[in-house]
Design a binder for these strands. Sequence first.
DNA 1: TTTTCCCGCCATCCT
DNA 2: AGGATGGCGGGAAAA
Length: 358
Amino acid sequence: MALSYSDIINPSSKHHTYSRKQKSLGLLCTNFLTLYNRDDIDVIGLDEAASKLGVERRRIYDIVNVLESVGVLARKAKNKYSWKGFAAVPKALQELKEEGLRDNVNAIDKQSNNSAKVVDDDEDEDDDSDSNPNTGSQNENYGIIKSTAASRADHRREKSLGLLTRNFVKLFVCSNANLISLDESAKLLLGDGHNSSIMRTKVRRLYDIANVLSSLKLIEKTHAADTRKPAFRWLGLRGKSENGSGDPLAPLESRKRTFGADVTNISFKRSKLDSSVDGDKSQSLKMQKQIKDEKIVTVAERGNVDQGFTAELRKLSSLALLLLLAWPKLATLKKKLLRSMTGRVFPLLSVHNTTTKL
DNA sequence: TTTTCCCGCCATCCT
DNA sequence: AGGATGGCGGGAAAA
């Protein structure tokens, strides 16, 4: 069979031992896509997907939740999702953008109570026990956040992978920063001060999300321009302008379907494993990332003045915006700041970015 | 070592 | 009750 070994770059691969790479969420998502990204697909059954892809149900939930957040899928019923395809992504992103801008803007007058939640939150630190924290308080979040009814135990939803995904995407879509590291994200999506434990967990989730978003080519992993710290760059719908009917996602790469690609994930347990049969697959090579080398954060007009300083300022302002977006408590301060910042020292920060880039 | 992040236990949310 | 969902974090493969 196609024996393109799991990794072209693995000459010394003795007897393949357990490899996380072939079990990654990203790969699973890619396989999921090659399996269902077709016009004649309507509904997708979770069990069916799980067995076809050779993974346990649990993993399907993981990718399905983020795919749904971006519009590629829509939950139809129990165990059933409908395929929307990449054609639905632009709209979903647009909505996320509006939603994000809206509810950080509608924080206008809220001085009465101190804490508000829009992005995400958790409970108080340290014990405290008993007595449910929130509840009674008159939440001011007007609509937007989807769920119309605030079910009591709906507290769970607030930590869902889906919500996290949407908020993560909002960070990119609502600001002009297109490069951000996961722990910055975690910090932004969480209040700044938090248990390292909470943070760690949040980052774990972000890794999961980032992997499938990467598979979708909505983001790409790189490194911060200055530091070597890994970070993710927003790609959005690349090579998709106008629109012409259909869809298409494939930015470049006009390859048709990938025949012979084994879409099934071999199921080796995490420990040892025999050597019978090869489990290759590796459907097509990754795809050349050829996003040119864009320098630092966002484009910005090519100034030739204090390049370095300007870049730093930009980066700073971007982070500041993100922080503000994620921290509704600072509504008032935010307004003042934006008012004074906009169109001046931070020209590229004008909130109403306009033109939906994506 | 640190960074990634898979695995699957088990709490929750539906039927 | 029983099945569908999906937090959550241990701990091991990858840098």
